[in-house]
Amino acid sequence: MSIILDHVNYVYGGDTALAVHALKDINLVIPDGQFIGLIGHTGSGKSTLVQHLNGLLKPTEGSIYYNGEDIHASDYDKKKLRSKVGLVFQYPEHQLFEIDVFSDVCFGPKNLGLSRKETELRAYAALKQVGLQDEYFYQSPFDLSGGQKRRVAIAGVLAMKPDVLILDEPTAGLDPRGRDEILDQIAKLKEETGITVILVSHSMEDVAKYVERIIVMNRGSVMYDGAPKEVFAHYRELEEVGLAAPQVTYIMRALRESGMPVAADATTIGEARDEILKALGKE
C-alpha cells in the first residue's frame, strides 16, 4: 500500500514558447502511515506535485501508481482514488457552499454514493476529528471564524475516509494560535487513525515539530528527501534557494562553533533546550 511516482514530468503551456517545466523527473515512494512535510517556496512545484497524487493533473511523462495500480490506466476508477487520496487545497474554506456546516461535510461522502445514514455518520465523525463543537453543526459555514471554517473544509475531505491526507498550506493566513491548533489537530488525527499525512508548507519551523520525513522541492525537482535532521544539516544550501532551517538550527551551530559541547542537529525548541541544559550541566 503506497504511492509511487516514477519519472514524473509535468509541462504546462503546451507547445508554445511559454511552456513551463513544472515538475522534472520526480521519483518518490510514499509508504503507508508516514507523516511527511513537503517544503518549497511559491513556484517550486509542490502544489503541482500534490495535484498529481490524486489524479487531478496528469503527468506529461512518467507514471503514478497507487497500491500498485497505474492511476492513469484507462479502466482505473479516478473517483475512488480521490476518496482514498484526500486533498485539502490552500484556503479550503473558499470551497464551502452549503447552507449549514453539516451538509457541507456530507458533500464528499454523498458523491461517493454512500447511503444517507453512512454519509451522516461519516460527516459527524469527521467534524469530531477536526475538533468542531456540536453547536456549530447547523450554522451557516459563512458565519464561522477563519479557523473554524478551515476545520469544516478539512472535515469535508476527511469524511471521505481517505487513506492519504494531503494538506496544501493548511495554516496560511491563520494567527499563531490558530496555526498551532490546526497542526496539533492534524498530528492527533495522524496518531489516532494512522493514515498517511502530507503537509505542504513553506515553513520549516512549522513542520519540523511534527513530521518524520521532509521532502524539499526546488524549481520542480526534489532537492532533499530525508529525516528533518538530515535535511536541516544542509541549511546553507537551503538558504541559497530561499528556504531556511528552523532558527534553533542556527543557534545550535553557532553555540558549537563558539565552543559549547552541544549536538548541532537539534531541530525543535525542546531538543535544543535539553542539549543546552546538558552542556551547562543543569540536567
Binding site: 473517483k79 480521490r82 487545497f89 458533500f107 458523491n111
Partner: peptide, 9 residues
C-alpha cells in the same frame, strides 16, 4: 479542482 477532489462530477 477542490470540488472534484471531494468527488464532485
Amino acid at each position: 479542482k477542490a470540488q472534484i477532489a471531494r468527488g464532485a462530477d
